[in-house]
Simulated scan of single mutants.
Amino acid sequence: MSQRNDPRPLPPEIYQRRRITAVVVLVVVVALLWWVISSLTGGDDAQDQVAQTSESTAATTAGSTAAASGSAESSATSTEASRLASPSASAEPSEPRGVPDEVASKTTCELDDLQLSVRPGAPTFRDGQQPNFFLEVTNPTSGECDIDLGENELKFEVFTMDSGYTRVWGDTDCNSPTSTGRLRLDADQSRTFEMTAWSRTTSSPGSCADRQPVGSGAYMVYGHIGDNTSESQTFNLA
């Protein structure tokens, strides 16, 4: 008569190791399948999406910083009559932006060579807040620039947007220019000028007796030095 040998149950550690091994194998198989499917369908899309998200986040952060800076600059209040020019040499030379090779290689600088960039002190000025404006002037040539601001006025102008393209104000209509004298810029050097406060009233050249308050809405500002004019920038009055 034969005797039956019943196998003894394995220790729990063995079963646990087998389960762990099975899970690891399953994860590896799923990873390989995902990699194959991703390669066939173009796996760069996910990377592109991550890159776009990073760029969007950086742009949002930069925009928030700029808006905060603009709000801080526009917090100071003063009257239009007591405005002053605030020229400041850049700490480091600005890189020429979109400068043709023939301009960048010039060893002389003329008024038309200057790059003008205007901006308001804030995207929106609240009710009662007097707008301020900045004009950055850059010499994109390889030579020194020497401009007589007495002959070529540095000025700002504001036009309406909501009710047609109408000039409503210029800072030299009723006051002297924000800056006079000579503007000297080395190659690639920039300087920024500020018009510290607009009284939010209308004006026209030589007509300052009946200045009317302007309404809320969208406006655009230009900066000028003589016949050289910047591109416009928009802002709102609340």
Results as ranks from 00 to 15, higher is better:
residue 85 A to H: 00
residue 144 E to R: 09
residue 59 A to R: 15
residue 13 E to R: 12
residue 211 R to N: 14
residue 134 F to I: 01
residue 67 A to Q: 12
residue 73 E to H: 11
residue 11 P to T: 06
residue 3 Q to D: 13
residue 29 V to W: 10
residue 99 V to H: 00
residue 35 W to L: 11
residue 168 V to G: 06
residue 228 N to R: 12
residue 174 C to D: 06
residue 138 T to V: 10
residue 138 T to N: 04
residue 63 G to I: 03
residue 211 R to S: 12
residue 83 R to H: 09
residue 159 F to N: 06
residue 12 P to D: 11
residue 98 G to D: 15
residue 224 H to S: 05
residue 172 T to D: 14
residue 151 E to Q: 15
residue 80 E to M: 11
residue 25 V to E: 15
residue 208 C to N: 13
residue 151 E to M: 13
residue 100 P to R: 03
residue 88 S to V: 07
residue 86 S to Q: 10
residue 77 T to M: 15
residue 154 L to G: 01
residue 185 L to I: 03
residue 184 R to Q: 15
residue 42 G to C: 07
residue 175 N to C: 03
residue 52 Q to Y: 02
residue 2 S to W: 05
residue 194 E to R: 11
residue 237 L to S: 02
residue 114 L to D: 00
residue 234 T to C: 01
residue 11 P to Q: 09
residue 22 A to G: 13
residue 45 D to H: 04
residue 156 F to D: 01
residue 209 A to M: 10
residue 189 Q to H: 10
residue 12 P to L: 09
residue 164 G to M: 09
residue 121 G to C: 05
residue 87 P to I: 01
residue 55 E to Y: 08
residue 96 P to V: 05
residue 130 Q to M: 11
residue 92 E to H: 06
residue 48 D to S: 08
residue 76 A to P: 01
residue 16 Q to Y: 05
residue 186 D to C: 01
residue 194 E to V: 09
residue 99 V to W: 00
residue 129 Q to N: 08
residue 69 S to L: 14
residue 236 N to V: 01
residue 161 M to R: 11
residue 124 T to M: 08
residue 173 D to K: 06
residue 146 D to I: 03
residue 3 Q to E: 14
residue 45 D to W: 04
residue 34 W to T: 07
residue 88 S to L: 12
residue 12 P to N: 08
residue 44 D to E: 15
residue 152 N to Y: 03
residue 215 G to E: 13
residue 130 Q to T: 05
residue 109 C to H: 00
residue 162 D to M: 07
residue 205 P to C: 04
residue 20 I to R: 15
residue 120 P to G: 02
residue 34 W to N: 10
residue 79 T to A: 11
residue 69 S to D: 10
residue 208 C to W: 10
residue 200 R to L: 05
residue 206 G to N: 08
residue 126 R to T: 09
residue 15 Y to K: 11
residue 222 Y to A: 01
residue 216 S to E: 11
residue 55 E to G: 04
